[in-house]
Amino acid sequence: MDIVVLLKQVPATESIIAVGGDGKSIKTDDLKWVISPYDEFAVEEALRIREGQGGKVTILTVGPDKATEAVRTALAMGADEGVLINDPAALACDGLGVARILAAALKQMPFDLVIAGQRAVDDDNYLVGTAVAEYMGIPNISMVNREEIADGKIKCRQTIEGGTVTLEADLPVLFTTQRGLNEPRYASLPGIMKAKKKPLETKSLADLGIDAATLQPVTAIAALQPPPERKGGRIIEGETAAEKAAELVKLLSEEAKVL
């Protein structure tokens, strides 16, 4: 079973995100960069499938030089090979552009299954994985919290509002991960040592036969802003807990008018 995991390096979720001087991007000094949490689920699930069925796990990402660290981390978790598409033109793309690049790279490698995070927790676009499936002409199943592979078929349980839906398809398929799918392992020290020797190939758009002119973005960030500041901090006083509770309910009803 050849499994490809689509991965993105993002700022750690504990980061404070501030708008940069151009008003269109974020300040990246002092940020800690990690594998997007939903992509970690993807790496873990790929490893578990390989452990059960044999095969190979390849990590595929688009990113700058520092994205190498994220790929190495995935290799240290146990993935077999990494491919980093590192090209200035790739970094200027929108989500559909990135999906086109990933699809072009996938066309150069054998795969039975592609796993991606449901979203990267930076852009929160919920777009790239599904768009890759469309460009590859394969079915996709989103937000999967359980999967089962047998006889060339995959059965996936996806979360929907208030419940789940289970779908089945013949491989190849792309599915995206949902929280609850698994608990990602940490990279072990021997894993980290081994990862240094695992193949990590860097490719340019030219290597993929992509003309950057075909990656014309259809979305553009015009401005970034911090969310409206909340005027919090009002503490309800009272002699007893009962007084505080009564005052809160009165305020919610008469002042905030939300009851």
């Binding site: 559909l96 919920y126 996709n140 989103s142 259809v218 979305t219």
Partner: peptide, 24 residues
């Protein structure tokens, strides 16, 4: 609607139609 399934539908449609998509 950017529900769970709506998000996926919007994404696949965006790729199919080469449409600029604003999610959520």
């Amino acid at each position: 609607g950017a529900s769970s399934q709506g998000k996926d539908l919007a994404a696949r449609l965006a790729a199919r139609l080469n449409a600029g998509l604003a999610m959520d």
